[in-house]
Design a protein around this nucleic acid. Sequence first.
DNA 1: CGCCAAGTTGATCGGTATCAAGTACGGTGG
DNA 2: CCACCGTACTTGATACCGATCAACTTGGCG
Lengths: 244, 244
Amino acid sequence: MEGMRKEDVVMEQGHQHHQHSIERELECVSQVPIFQGLADDQMTSVAQVTRPIHADKGDAVFSTGEVSRTLYIVNTGQVRLYHLAEDGREQILRVLNPGDFIGEIALFTDEIHTSYAQATKTTELCTISRAALTDLITALPTLSMALLGALADRLKTAERQATLLAIPDALPRLAGYLLQISGHRAQLLELPMSKQDLAAYLGMTPESMSRKLRQLSKQGAIETVGRRQVRITNVDQLAEFAPE
Amino acid sequence: MEGMRKEDVVMEQGHQHHQHSIERELECVSQVPIFQGLADDQMTSVAQVTRPIHADKGDAVFSTGEVSRTLYIVNTGQVRLYHLAEDGREQILRVLNPGDFIGEIALFTDEIHTSYAQATKTTELCTISRAALTDLITALPTLSMALLGALADRLKTAERQATLLAIPDALPRLAGYLLQISGHRAQLLELPMSKQDLAAYLGMTPESMSRKLRQLSKQGAIETVGRRQVRITNVDQLAEFAPE
DNA sequence: CGCCAAGTTGATCGGTATCAAGTACGGTGG
DNA sequence: CCACCGTACTTGATACCGATCAACTTGGCG
């Protein structure tokens, strides 16, 4: 991760601004999956329109009501996206891990953000303005393809999520979710969010979540480890409870 | 990483159709929103790699298990996408109306279709192979942008759908859905699918759907008109039942 | 006009939300 | 390193909503 050869590229670009190096920007860009596959000089031109952002744990990256004209890409750390219901309950939309991005809708319309984005730990992001990104897209077909691929992937996830949520019973919803994030493999896995957030994400209450997890572990399909981990001990058993 | 070079598959495939007129293909292409904004000659090159497909009411466009290497765009008619649960119940994923497309995931991986696509009426589609489309994307930035926009839009819909489905009570789910497809406007609107399909789409039974619709109309928020239409008579009233 | 699928209505049952207490994990400070 | 504390999580009891099964009605297509 550290040993990137980027110094020579930085030099070539030095004339634009003064010697304010774009090293930090390049580091961000080079880490991000959608920019993999770009040549060094292409990466540099991306880095030039990138602006890094830092957010400490608990900080808001953006809030509801703000106008969205920027693409945010998580470099390190984690960001959670959520809605705030009028009763104060938070509905988790998605958790962004390194490489994930948000704001793609901003590319096409002056949309108002309908959710909050909050760092759950110390987080580094890079941002790209709409204008800069549209320029990049037209100039770099490789980037277009990468973006399309990432969007298609998220779409698939969202549609699978919707299919899960349409199931009326909580047990298959949970089982299906666990199977999905484990890749149908018996393993110890870290939950991407707290159990109460996960409960909301899966359309149930924390109480139901707890009961269903217990039920699954009594059946020998899983074990809960601490507060944030679940070990899948028997995939077939788990699949019994899942849909299809 | 190595730079990607585009192979000239477009020309090779286009060659085969060169003999007869591409009038039919052009008609399809010119109707489709994602191809709007292309110059005439660009549209022609798109048309050359397009293959029209006809499906009568009830016909399958593709089925679960088939390998997906094609983008399908609906020209006229309607296609419904659904999963088949083991108990035989159909879970509607999405309904494709003219201009909508499916198969974008096929562009990036040899994915197996996980759903069925069935025409609900006489339908004309155009199809584009993966190779041809990737070439088009690299050649036509306008098309890239249009595709990205369409995907971002679908993503937004899917995520909103997931948010709706996470609500445990049926009434706000239905109210939220109606508000959404009506654009928060009082108007007569055509349901995009049958009520029983809509019920599955919203994660409830046809019986519940019927009862909740009745409840909303007793409150004066809506009126049901025939089997496929709903008139929104009081948006504020409807919003009372919707989340947020 | 007649038929059949789609939709409605009713009665019952089960599952989950809710409310209310209790428990334990994991971070903080001593 | 350990004791402490707050919050996340768990457990229990009850009520309510929606799924289910069954019977009926209606719209709309041939």
